[in-house]
Design a binder for these strands. Structure first.
Lengths: 244, 244
DNA sequence: TCAATTTTTGAATTGGATTCATAATCACCC
DNA sequence: GGGTGATTATGAATCCAATTCAAAAATTGA
């Protein structure tokens, strides 16, 4: 059925167009300002057409986050293959997320918003299913790094499976994002302006997991150098992942 | 001005009524279903009256979270005074948050929602200011526990101030909540049904911070016993804090 | 008791998401 | 090439709930 295939492809292309434009509008005006009718108009389609792709505005937002996680997957796969220690890979994942957020500042806020009950429940079940399925390889990849560390005896299993262990750094990253994202929060409590702080905290956690090699938490220069090195390593690769 | 005072008091009482009823409606029907007009009606006031207290629906939601953090403060102050080690106090804070969430399941979701850009920016600046000011003593209290640990040489300062250190467990708790909150997320990746997992992760972090006494992460029975003990200790105190 | 002032009221307005009857396009067949 | 039924796109109309605001009610002070 070559006709059906073509239609399907065109449909998929249009969906990408909608998502591209939505991302663009969000980047310039903020999530708050995103409206369905103007978005459709900006893509030269009618409002109704937009609704043939997304069952609701929330559904579109979830789709947007889902697409980003596909990009992240390729990016993260590259990290997994890097010739660095398993512990550094885990750190690199975190650095990668940060690069991604610097490249697209509204994304962090969008992600936080999308996993909110209000938005999540208003997206279609199919869309939720899709984003979970898309994210699975990502979670597996991180679990894989943990498993590798366990197999290499760099990390004791602590009676947990690799996924359960991988949740700890994941939660820490998510939490750090949330706190930094909320405007005025950290400032109101005690001026946290150090962008390396989250990495210091992550290292604390990794040390606590006994993930070898342990690092000296007092050595700020070492941490700065390490993050600098990872960023330099990752940024070109990030650009190449986003070039298509 | 006794007249002005009385008016002010009545106004404050009405505000509490609105908040109580809103919490009740959210608890039964979910955040999604909360509507301003029915809420006002349920309190036997006109819609417009509601808007004399809250500049928008988002403003009301932020107020709701703010009020809860006042309750938490008294609860946490009790913890701070408990005759247990500083490390256990930090753990107890986390347990306390969980008790609070079990007692009021919609609260975790609400909190996540409220600190979202979309909601946060739609609340009035005054309200944001209030919640930050209300939360400050809470943050100070936690920082105080950290400081106490440093002073007692139970915790090395790692070149950071107490607040910066306290952000690490805070972020981990926030992140754990977010992940658990998102329906289907952890289930889709690898069945995490262990309610103690978050505490195990916290202990990993605290071990990594070198917060004495270090605990054996493999000893599940010990962890279960410790959490059990803290819950038993905290629950009566929680009830007495919510009894007024 | 009355007039000025403050507060409350809830119907009307508004903004924007979503729908759906109609029009256009397409795929297929003669 | 044109006719036909099926599929898809359109955007004005609908709907829903947040928000406003002119009028009514209550309060205050004289």
């Amino acid at each position: 059925m070559t006709v059906t295939e073509r239609k399907e492809r065109q449909r998929a292309e249009r969906e990408q167009l909608f998502l591209d434009k939505a991302a663009e509008l969000i980047a310039t005006d903020g999530i708050l300002q995103l409206q369905m009718a103007p978005l459709a108009k900006a893509c030269d389609y009618a409002t109704g057409t937009l609704y043939q792709h997304f069952s609701s505005k929330e559904d579109l937002l979830v789709a947007l986050v889902g697409r980003n996680s596909c990009h992240q997957l390729r990016f993260f796969q590259g990290i997994s293959a890097l010739p660095i220690s398993s512990r550094e890979k885990m750190l690199a994942i975190c650095v990668a997320e940060n690069i991604n957020q610097q490249h697209n500042p509204s994304h962090a806020g969008l992600e936080q918003y999308v996993f909110t009950e209000v938005v999540w429940q208003n997206a279609s079940a199919a869309r939720r299913q899709t984003i979970l399925a898309n994210s699975k390889p990502l979670a597996d990849l991180v679990s894989g790094i943990v498993q590798q560390a366990i197999d290499n005896k760099e990390l004791p299993a602590h009676n947990c499976d690799a996924f359960a262990l991988s949740v700890a750094p994941w939660a820490l990253c998510v939490g750090s994002n949330t706190l930094e994202q909320t405007e005025g929060l950290l400032e109101a409590f005690g001026g946290n302006k150090d962008p390396l702080q989250r990495y210091r905290h992550l290292h604390m956690l990794l040390n606590g997991m006994q993930w070898q090699p342990l690092i000296d938490l007092n050595d700020r220069a070492l941490l700065a150098e390490q993050i600098q090195r990872l960023e330099t390593l990752l940024k070109p690769w990030f650009s190449s992942c986003n070039a298509d």
